[in-house]
Each structure stands twice: as structure tokens, then as C-alpha cells.
Amino acid sequence: MEIIIDVKGLTRTFGDVTAVNNISLSVQKGELFGLLGPNGSGKTTMIKCLTGQLKPTSGEVRVMGLDAVAQPVRVRELVGITPEQETPPSFLTAEEYLHFVGHIRRIADIESQCGFWFDFLEFGDKRDVLCKDLSRGTRQKLMVAQAFLHKPGLVLIDEPLINLDPIMQRKIKNYLTEYVKGGGTVFLSTHILEIAEEICTRIGIIHQGNLIREGPVAEIRSSSKHLEEFFLDAVRGDPHA
């Protein structure tokens, strides 16, 4: 199988704080990998290192065969990213923002792409509203849409469903599952365990910057434990988890 994300000995520190500590990890094509961890465990730092937004203090990061440190812009050309906190620019409308991303990514059929996402995520009636006047949920839909506009082979999503209603959450979960079946790869970071248990094919648990567990979700399902139990045991340091 083709390896899409290959991380070796990744460490990232901020002053005295080690946000990510010597993590090695690989994600194969067609996987829906879930990085789980409590708040502040290093998930967002990990995604930023994978996409060249942050330079690792040490270690190697290869994404879709590219060195994310040496070619961060090229990596971001190939992948789609839904960040956790960043919001679309305040004074563009939702439609203008998607067009703006389309210009940056040089997407030829931006109009049809926009049409699809407005329909699919059901916010076409907000296309002419300034981003700063959009609800939090609609902004999140917009950020999800911008990540898929250029039909990337890999999408990295940081807390993807946190502001969405259950109907929209279901839609996006289904979409991600279909996207992976179609040959795409997803790297998902979340602390909502139900999402990971439901749609991920493999998970890793990060705690205090360390990758403390990693494995297929099917193995957890086949055991008597729920993911929540498994997660809590892992974070609390149960060696049998």
C-alpha cells in the first residue's frame, strides 16, 4: 500500500514545552486515520507540522512523498486542510471566499465546485453573506468546503464537526467515508470519540505530546471495550489498554 503520511521521530517544542515528542507514525492511502487526544495534547501541533505550517524541532515529515519541511507550499497544494480555529476572512462573502481559495489553488471549475458544496452542505442561501456575519456552524461548513474544493488526495481535518448540528454531522461523516472508499485519505484530529469510533479505520492516541497507542479500530471493536474505555485507560496509563 502507498504510504501517504510518513512521520519519523517528530518533535516540536515551544520554549520549555514539548508539544509533540518523538512521534513516529504512518498513514496509508485509503485510510481514515483518527488522532485522538485530550485538549492540549498536541493534536493541532501535529497537523500543523504535517502541513508545513510549523517546522519540527527535530524529525522527518513526508506527506504524499514530499518533505513537508522543505516543500511546505507544495504539500499544501496537494492536500486539503480544515483548521480548528482559523475562520474565513471577515469581509469576503462565503461565495467570494471559495472563489478566493479557487484563485489561490488555480481551480478551473470553481463555479461548479462552489455550487456542489453550497448544495451539499445546505448553505447556498448564505453565499452572499459576509463571512464575519455567518454563524459558527456555517463558517465551519465553509472551511470544510474549501478543503475539498480542489479534490485533494489527502485531507487533514482538525475537529471537523464540533459546531455542526447532528444532521450535518451525519452528512459529513458519510461523505468522509465515501471519500476514503473512493481512494482518498483522511487524517482526522478530534477529542470526540464517537466520531472516531464510527468512521475511522485506524486511530492513534496522543497524550502530553506522546503517541501512546495506535491501531485499527476493528481491533477495539472486536474486544469487549468501547473506544471511550480504551481511550481513558490509555490516557490514565493502563498498560493493558
Partner: peptide, 14 residues
């Protein structure tokens, strides 16, 4: 004044 680079950081822009 109107944007920080974080608004672009996840896009392929230097």
C-alpha cells in the same frame, strides 16, 4: 490590518 497570516497558513501561499 485586516488579516493575519494564519488565515492563509493552511493554503498553498507563502
Amino acid at each position: 490590518e485586516f488579516d493575519l497570516f494564519t488565515s492563509y497558513a493552511f493554503l498553498p501561499v507563502e
